[in-house]
Amino acid sequence: MAASIDVQNLQIDFPLYHGQSRSLKKTLLNKAKGSSRVEENSQHKTVIKAVRDISFSLRAGERLGIVGHNGAGKTTLLRALAGVYEPVGGRVQIRGSLNAMLDPGQGMNMELTGRENVALRGRFHRMNQQEIEHLQEDVRNFAELGDFFDLPVRTYSSGMIVRLAFAMATAFRPEVLLMDEWFLAGDASFRSKAQERLESLVRGADILVLSTHINEIVRSWCTRVIWMEDGRIRADGPAGEVLDAFAGGKTDQSLFPETVLS
């Protein structure tokens, strides 16, 4: 059986436990009355409805782009797909090996050296010592870290962290690839190199789910687009159509720098 993703009526709520007080609750509830993403659940707890009523299916060969404004629920949806957050309602099923590139930090320990962080990632993928050494060389060369590879990650520049994270995340070839938009950061010279490696990774994967608000990338890579708004699916369809609607629906063009990559 090939890779697939099935999502039915997915709902993710974030509970607000800490620093919660009656008055805060009231303020939030009153403020949110319009869009009502902050609600009281059946147990009288304040929850933020991050994602609701999400249903879609992906089969091998499909490349899905998720677009939407900040706070629309894109990242939460990706995390739910990656199994970090378990559904508060509905169901998520994924078939095939999975790699989720969710954020540049991605479980990296800033106190450890780049080499040690790579070793940890290797262990996570059940590699043995030899495979890990191989992986370390691969990452070190690709990320162009030089001697920094043996220094704690906290001494790196932010560009170096992104390069390390990128090299590490793209070293594994999954069937299902979940990606957040952070990988588009990094300096210009690295970007073309990254693009190349990423494209080969994307081609290698059976299914891609990409969350970004950079239209250009979605247009060139994705076959299908889901437009999210307030935690729900606003539109779902062929990339071109939904992107045009999305672009038409927004007022300020400058918010979406479509030329970032060119």
Partner: peptide, 24 residues
């Protein structure tokens, strides 16, 4: 689409879900 991933992933993995989560 150029499909590079191994078609020959082991049989038992194919029937298994990488992620199968639901509510309730």
């Amino acid at each position: 689409l150029v499909k590079q991933s191994d078609v020959s992933t082991s049989q038992d993995e194919e029937t298994e879900f990488a992620i199968d989560l639901r509510h309730g």
